[in-house]
Design a binder for these strands. Structure first.
Lengths: 133, 133
DNA sequence: TATCTGTTATATGTATTATATAACAGATAT
DNA sequence: ATATCTGTTATATAATACATATAACAGATA
């Protein structure tokens, strides 16, 4: 687990951690059923508070990306990952619309914008071994 | 100016307003040189505080999307819009990477993801009349 | 028994967001 | 000139979010 958080970022630490963990699942660095460090261990290794890690874990659990076994601790969702829910679609639309509008105003062509989207999707699943769906 | 803000949203009001104004510029609803309502007028018509509008205007001015003339008031940047700066690229990368990773984990294919990106870019400039670059 | 797990409770400090009221200097219109 | 409108600045207050700290609980583990 090579996770780095930016303490200077405007993004909250718990959101950064959520992003890093989802990116880990997308890339295959974290596979279904894989155990995650305990909240206390991860907090210590990241140099942040236990409750900040716990908040990230709790939100990821609520969304179905993680499971908490009384015995095995926190693990990556071993069964079906959450699908494209209405909430996720709404978030995707909202953020993409905002990014696309600013990109257009700044003179970024549709091709350039779409190419970046494609490239970053490819980067996200790069390490999965081609089973990226 | 048909702007609606979501008072329930997690997004701050001043950020929502920034998004709506940039989207207005992207779509052509707001053209270079167009005057914007005064901070007090817009605040009243949106039902929010003067300082919240002023914060949005100030940030948009700092980024070069708006200009403040002592005589003409606040207008849409009449000269060259800000280009694709390093800061914007960094923001674009950060947010797209996060969205792409979650989309991939949720089973959204690269094609579906890229198509949404393309569609939302097209929606953003739809009313510009095809001079979208 | 001692230790580790997630979880919950409580408290504190800081920053952000949004509001309110007031005032200033420049420009505009009557 | 007087009154009004402009962006801007100052100050204050309340609510919320973020991050931390300390403590405790029940279940599982060694």
């Amino acid at each position: 687990m090579f996770i780095e958080l930016d303490l200077q970022s405007e993004n909250p630490l718990y959101e950064q951690l959520i992003d890093r963990l989802i990116e880990g699942i997308a890339s295959g660095a974290l596979k279904p059923g894989d155990p995650l460090p305990s909240v206390r261990n991860l907090a210590e290794s990241l140099g942040i508070n236990l409750h900040t890690v716990n908040k990230s874990y709790t939100l990821l659990k609520q969304d179905g990306f993680l499971q908490v076994h009384r015995k095995r601790g926190v693990i990556v969702q071993p069964d079906a990952m959450p699908g494209v829910t209405a909430e996720f679609e709404a978030k995707l639309f909202r953020q993409l619309r905002s990014l696309a509008a600013e990109a257009a105003v700044r003179g970024m062509t549709e091709e350039a914008f779409v190419n970046q989207c494609r490239r970053l999707y490819g980067d996200a699943i790069r390490k999965r071994g081609g089973d990226g769906q």
